[in-house]
Simulated scan of single mutants.
Amino acid sequence: MKTFFTRTASALVFVAIMLTGILYSPFTFFLLFFLVNFFALQEYFKLIRNIDPDYGNTSGWHKTGVLVASCALILSFTGDHFAGGNLSLGFLGWWIAIIFLMVLPVGEILLSNEFSLKNIGYSAMGLLYITISFGLLIHLCLNYNTIHFTAGPAGIGTGPGWLIPLLLIIFIWINDTMAYIVGSLIGRTPFFPSISPKKTIEGTVGGMILAIAAAGIYGYYWGSQWLSLQHWMVLAGLAAVVGTAGDLMESKLKRMAGVKDSGNIMPGHGGFMDRFDSLILAAPFAWIYIHFFAMS
């Protein structure tokens, strides 16, 4: 019972922080995912150190430099949205990222006792896997107000920047919740027993169908002024399919690292990667779809 109340309380706090950050202003949206990226990246590095102890031998310069480069990359995705005079956060982040990504390998060669291309590869994968994903999510939010989308019979529409990221998160949540419920009721066939023994094919397919159905209902009754029905359904499909792959990917990393959770920031719910594993992989695909297929 105590565990239930702990999980419930931490979940409510998590939802309150998420909604405040996403809905309050574009800057709080950016700040929220800037911090999520920072802590999720550190959890990724911890997993990699458990998987390959050699990664623990990287120099302090390497560890600090990768985090600085990650923060700078996130800043670069803001473009000209947060500017004072002739200087913007995006411009500043872009140049800091270039400088650190150029000098980081040089510093690794000069300052590490044992130079390892493998360790550089681990760090680069973290930037690609986590930082670029959250950067694209921020870019999607900040540019949605200024991008025109095809909106079917309603013509061309724009919407609040948080709309697509928030709906993407909701579609992922519906998929996960419905997959659990359907799997508990009728699940019989294991989906990926070597990675996630509790997932079933019936639950996975059921969650995807219900997430797409929910997107269809939203698109038909409320969302058509911004995106046409088929776009909402495709986004939900991406959230379900790619989000499930993201969940399995993080589960594989944790299994290889020999840990149950990526962190313990949320009592009863794990770490940042545990909470955002599906979004990490779904965000780039959503960005690609919106910018190359949903734009007018």
Rank of each mutant, 00 (worst) to 15 (best):
285 F>I: 11
194 S>Q: 14
223 G>A: 09
121 G>P: 06
228 S>M: 10
261 D>N: 09
288 I>G: 08
274 D>K: 05
226 W>T: 05
114 E>V: 14
249 M>E: 09
154 A>G: 08
230 Q>K: 13
258 G>T: 11
28 T>P: 03
93 G>T: 04
89 L>G: 00
95 W>N: 12
58 T>P: 03
234 V>W: 00
277 D>I: 05
114 E>M: 10
155 G>D: 09
144 Y>H: 08
285 F>K: 03
65 G>K: 02
256 M>K: 09
75 L>W: 05
130 I>E: 02
153 P>D: 14
182 V>R: 00
223 G>P: 03
87 L>Y: 07
276 F>R: 06
146 T>A: 11
296 S>Q: 12
131 T>D: 04
266 M>I: 15
44 Y>P: 01
283 A>Y: 01
130 I>W: 00
32 L>E: 05
290 I>P: 01
277 D>H: 07
268 G>L: 02
103 V>H: 05
250 E>F: 06
296 S>W: 11
99 I>V: 15
2 K>Q: 15
12 L>S: 14
223 G>F: 05
122 Y>A: 03
126 G>P: 00
134 F>V: 00
131 T>F: 04
71 C>Q: 03
34 F>H: 07
244 T>E: 08
66 V>G: 01
46 K>I: 06
89 L>H: 04
87 L>S: 08
122 Y>D: 02
12 L>R: 10
152 G>T: 07
21 G>T: 07
77 F>P: 02
258 G>W: 06
124 A>C: 09
170 I>A: 13
169 I>C: 04
155 G>Q: 11
22 I>M: 15
193 P>D: 13
183 G>H: 06
197 P>D: 13
33 F>I: 03
167 L>G: 01
244 T>D: 05
234 V>E: 03
188 R>P: 09
15 V>L: 15
195 I>F: 11
154 A>S: 14
56 G>A: 15
223 G>L: 05
4 F>R: 09
278 S>P: 07
247 D>Q: 05
76 S>T: 09
89 L>Q: 02
8 T>D: 11
225 Q>D: 13
96 I>D: 04
29 F>D: 06
273 M>H: 02
3 T>E: 15
67 L>M: 12
259 V>A: 09
174 I>V: 15
187 G>I: 06
144 Y>M: 10
174 I>S: 00
27 F>A: 13
171 F>M: 08
86 N>Y: 08
58 T>I: 15
9 A>R: 11
247 D>I: 04
273 M>A: 06
40 A>E: 00
290 I>V: 15
192 F>E: 05
40 A>W: 02
15 V>E: 11
